[in-house]
Nucleic acid binder design. Sequence first.
DNA 1: TTTATTATTTAGATTTGTCTAAATAATATT
DNA 2: AATATTATTTAGACAAATCTAAATAATAAA
Lengths: 219, 219
Amino acid sequence: MNLSIAEENHIKSIYKLQEGDAVVTTNALAYELDTKPASVTDMAKKLKEKKLIEYEKYKGITLSADGRKAALQIVRRHRLWECFLVEKLSFSWEEVHELAEELEHVRSEKLTNRLSEFLGNPVIDPHGDPIPDANGKLAKPRPQTSLDQANAKRLVVTAVTDQSTALLAFLNAKGIKLGTQLEIMAHYEYDNSIEIKVKGQSAITISEQVAKNIMVRPL
Amino acid sequence: MNLSIAEENHIKSIYKLQEGDAVVTTNALAYELDTKPASVTDMAKKLKEKKLIEYEKYKGITLSADGRKAALQIVRRHRLWECFLVEKLSFSWEEVHELAEELEHVRSEKLTNRLSEFLGNPVIDPHGDPIPDANGKLAKPRPQTSLDQANAKRLVVTAVTDQSTALLAFLNAKGIKLGTQLEIMAHYEYDNSIEIKVKGQSAITISEQVAKNIMVRPL
DNA sequence: TTTATTATTTAGATTTGTCTAAATAATATT
DNA sequence: AATATTATTTAGACAAATCTAAATAATAAA
């Protein structure tokens, strides 16, 4: 099955919005892809024709087994390129998403597998997201909670759920990245902000919104 | 100036066919791009509009200064990716062209420059072609002749002019690559075939057609 | 349960890049 | 120089991916 870039992008976004099994709505997908609902409807018909999604008028979209397989390949490529950019070309965390967005569309299995090997077959990308293997299998995620709900005192950053450039740049400025060790100093009930100490730095206070998007596990 | 993939491919092929200053014909370009002459005419109008080429009806095409600059950037990306694929991902000589053809369209200067740095700022690619630097400057090519016209006995392979998979696979099978040392044993007048000894191997005979596409310089 | 609101789809248009077939220009041949 | 051949362009069509505006379905509110 040879997918166009537009088709791949739709498949990938459906996968992202589905989060397991949820039905994806036309509007949500249009918003995610920065297009119009009418365009999504058009594409949905095409992808249904190709048996990559299940879709009935007005009933929303889910990936078929084939669609999920395709999505995992795209995600694999995306995350491997992110690793490459960060580890080999010294790009910072927040810069890599857009570039990986382009590189992911080079659909060569051989290239993908060689790249993976070159990187030491990593299983998580620089944002902490798991990288599907050549068969599309995801490493089972280690238990993690968002920082605002963590109860342990000493924690390690394992992922960031909002990958907007703004948040990633903020975290970068504060010296917070994957694997960074944190210590919770205080919770402020008033606005649910949290005071944390980043290992080797002085304490800072972060908003609830930021805390919600930082995933951690106990050290 | 933001070029589409189709526009970039046209620019690149014009650059390739121009070889310095020659005028490129509609038919030649169509053949090179595996499209139809009518399509080339359409694109020529568009590229002229964008001031990337000089073009008058029935008079053929040449690159403008801007067009040449754009072409050199594309060529730079293409050749850097070829280096990456061969040196870092252990692809063989003849496999990399198609992949680089896709990777070259990721138009990020930062990525290109970081990649170049990562590779040690190479000045020739795995086929022996020079890699333009960030300003589009080409290393001046060292004096070289095709193997069928060489007069020295002992030679080094510096480039291959026909990059068809067939030829590259042939050379690969015979253990001939960039930097390979050759010794000319005999010329056969009958069909202009040449007997050569590849360093460390027994002698082989190659056709005139092959010899014409292997560039060498005296050892 | 009507009515209002929101979500989704349809119909028809647009852009990009391509094509075929026909027309025209340039070049080669007699 | 007239004619034949080849190269190039034009005209009109098509597919992919998108859009806007209007129509319809689903859902929420009165």
